[in-house]
């Protein structure tokens, strides 16, 4: 078992992760700061906040279909 991120994982496809405009949108949307921007503006996942995910779907609404996946590790990897 992983000590961090036991419950939630987030996957972002490479193209979306490099999109600085999308990175900003995600950073603003997520209420528990799972997304942040690196110095070069690219997307960064804040590992220690993953388990705080409230399953609100705001990140999904803010991104193109399929670009972002929120995965419930406790539910056999079900995708939100």
């Amino acid at each position: 078992m992983r000590a961090d991120g036991m419950f939630i994982a987030v996957e972002v496809d490479d193209q979306a992760a490099a999109d600085t405009a999308l990175a900003r949108k995600l950073t603003e949307a997520c209420p528990v700061d799972i997304y942040a921007q690196r110095d070069d503006g690219a997307l960064q996942i804040v590992e220690q906040n993953l388990d705080e995910c409230v399953l609100c779907r705001l990140c999904l609404d803010a991104s193109p279909d399929g670009a972002v996946k929120v995965i419930k590790l406790y539910d056999d990897g079900a995708v939100l």
Binding site: M1, A3, M6, F7, D51, V54, L55
Partner: peptide
């Protein structure tokens, strides 16, 4: 308060 959030917290405590 949310059931799932508390559940995650207490389980995490045990595991850690």
């Amino acid at each position: 308060t949310r059931v799932d959030i508390v559940a995650r917290g207490v389980i995490k405590a045990c595991v850690e």
